[in-house]
Amino acid sequence: MKLTKVSKRNLITYGIVIAFYIIIQILNLTGNLSSHMEGLLVPMTYYSIVAVALNLTVGILGELSLGHAGFMCIGAFSASLFSVATKETMNGGLRFFLALVIGTVMAAIFGFLIGIPVLRLKGDYLAIVTLAFGEIIKNILAAVYLGYDEAGLHISFKSFVLQGEGKMLINGAMGIQGTPSDSSFTIAIVILLISLFIVQNLVNSRDGRAIMSIRDNRIASESVGINVVKYKMLAFVISAAIAGTAGVLFSHNTSTLTATSTYFGYNVSIMILVYVVLGGIGNIRGSVIAASILYILPEMLRGLSNYRMLIYSIVLIVIMLINWAPKAIEVREKYVTLLKRRFAK
């Protein structure tokens, strides 16, 4: 079968991810990977996954979401609850698989519930509603107590004492303790590849074209019979679901899960949005690359303490210029065509 331009482009994306994975494995086996770096691999990958998810909403559907950290939070908490509750009774592999499914489905349900009223409206209401959603979810999960004992399941915003045999599942601001650390770099990379596969395939399909047509011109979409609300919902729910999956990876990478602003606040949603914008709106591969670099960079610069944020901001500005300045795009395209000609020979 002849490869089209599009499928070639998609294959390159998978190739980059796999090559990166192999390089890391080699570094690891030869003892060249510090334990600090090793600890960054899973977070880097789940932020790449959320960036891909958010790009589906922002770049492909053309709607703004400021609550993707909230969907991560839903995925993280629902899956952790499940894993903590079944830790003693279920085999590890199956348990983590089910945890991934539960986190994904729960985030999808919340995406659906938010989308139903908001995506019907004409106008940019999604940003404000998702922003509020993320903050509310985070604050609720930071305040709720959930536990079970001989008398049954208890849920409250005040702490309580369990009667006899029992277990605290969510312990207010202390969150969920003892989530099994099922996430690994390998699983995270597999999920990144699956997310890329889903989103890139979707973009290049009948449903994806419908979604992008809404982004480009809603009135024209309706005029050719595209069910605008249905396709907005489809894109947004898939986007929320993938963010939920990333949340599962998050919570199964730390034994203590707390709903704090550092991990689930609007600033995190905005950070993910920065990844998407700098990687190129609508450019799925760009999201992965930008998220990876921009997540790792501040960590690598830790040694420079005072200059860290300065250097980080300079890098942000440089990336932005390279990506968006007309002159830079001109130069870049010139070199790309030159290179292509070289290789074509």
């Binding site: 009948r206 074209r209 419908a210 992008m212 047509s213 982004r215 480009d216 011109n217 009135i219 024209a220 979409s221 005029s223 050719v224 019979g225 595209i226 609508g282």
Partner: peptide
């Protein structure tokens, strides 16, 4: 089906994809 006085194409889609959106149903 209609066209618009102030052209409303799906500007970031290819020419053929514009038609394929029309073929959607």
């Amino acid at each position: 089906a209609r066209t618009f006085q102030n052209i409303r194409l799906f500007k970031d889609l290819s020419v053929i994809d514009n038609v394929k959106v029309g073929l959607h149903n």
